[in-house]
């Protein structure tokens, strides 16, 4: 009897130590995670390299545009300025400001003509003449302005010589001056701008595991944002409002905008890259970036131009975009 009671007591003790709520059959092991719900991860997303070949003013590439600009601008900007205010030239600060900036006492055109008059046989007039000779558009403009005065099919040296002599003649001086002013005004107010071609991104193939880790499982627990930096070594200051659209080519312009960054300004004067403000993005939009074809449009607008700077094919714009993700990185079994 004693032995039975002893055995019963031990059995009760043994089973009494069983934690019924600790049931290994309910063990959930289909999710492995890096971090926890409070973790923050960053990852590189893409590096966009814009070469000078992808930048133009709609008519000519950036190198040619800068050459023209350097020709139509005085060598020394009024007031000792380092750069030309393109926004004022475009009339964005009003017509009065535009007129004053061009033809006022400290205007660009005023300074240009003063520079030419100071040395009519000098380099500025030669530079303008050479640029006109090299441009069919400008040659036609001057032929229309002064018919028969400019030799047709003349070589560069001959053309420059004729240009200088016509500017020196009292009877043709004003005609040539007005032609120079007119062409300079037209270029500076209409053609000094920049357009960056859209880029096509055919997805980012990092494997489904990594993609799902970054974009999440669509359960709403993750917060994703994009941020980065952008820099340029071109003699420009421009604003940009990058956007990503679904699709590419002709369909891209009407395609769905996945997300857009707020406007920011990039300048060659900055020693450090310009920060691209952190912008929240949905998991679905980021997933589209990874999985589908999208187009990237910088939507750049020229704000200032720094004349007389070297412009080569090695220069361009580089933007780095990164992902910031809050929450654990999940990879499912």
């Amino acid at each position: 009897m004693k032995k039975r009671l002893t055995l019963l007591f031990v059995s009760l003790l043994a089973f009494g130590c069983v934690d019924e709520t600790y049931d290994l059959s309910t063990l959930k092991s289909d999710e492995l995670a890096i971090g926890d719900d409070n973790s923050v991860f960053t990852a590189p997303l893409l590096t966009l390299s814009v070469s000078i070949g992808e930048i133009s003013n709609g008519n000519v590439d950036l190198v040619e545009m800068c050459r023209e600009a350097d020709a139509w601008l005085p060598d020394v900007l009024p007031g000792g300025a380092e750069a030309v205010d393109v926004e004022t030239l475009m009339g964005e600060r009003g017509t009065e400001a535009q007129t004053a900036y061009l033809t006022g006492p400290d205007g660009l055109l005023t300074a240009l003509m003063d520079e030419i008059d100071a040395d009519p046989q000098g380099g500025k007039l030669v530079e303008i003449a050479e640029m006109i000779h090299g441009s069919e558009r400008y040659r036609k403009a001057f032929d229309d302005l002064a018919p028969g005065l400019f030799p047709s099919d003349a070589q560069l040296e001959e053309y420059v010589g004729v240009f200088q002599s016509l500017y020196g003649e009292p009877g043709t001086r004003e005609l040539i001056r007005s032609g120079i002013e007119s062409c300079a005004r037209q270029f500076l107010t209409l053609d000094l701008n920049m357009t960056v071609e859209a880029f096509v991104l055919d997805g980012i193939d990092v494997g489904s595991d990594v993609r799902k880790m970054i974009t999440g499982n669509g359960d709403g627990k993750v917060s994703i944002s994009l941020f980065g930096d952008i820099a340029t070594d071109l003699p420009l200051e421009f604003s940009a409002e990058p956007s990503f659209k679904r699709g590419a080519g002709p369909t891209a312009s009407s395609g769905e905008t996945l997300f857009r960054f707020p406007v920011f300004t990039v300048s060659a004067e900055n020693e450090l890259p310009t920060a691209i403000a952190e912008t929240e993005i949905s998991s679905e939009a980021l997933n589209t970036l990874f999985e589908e074809q999208t187009s990237i449009n910088l939507q750049a607008r020229l704000k200032r131009y720094f004349p007389r700077q070297e412009v080569t094919s090695r220069q361009g714009i580089v933007a780095h975009l990164k992902v910031r993700r809050k929450g654990a990185l999940i990879f499912n079994n």
Partner: peptide
């Protein structure tokens, strides 16, 4: 290694980052 997709006018450079 994954440094981000390298995008330029010619497209996207190949990415070699598959955990598999």
């Amino acid at each position: 290694t994954f440094d981000g997709a390298q995008v330029d006018a010619s497209g996207v450079a190949d990415i070699d980052f598959n955990l598999g």
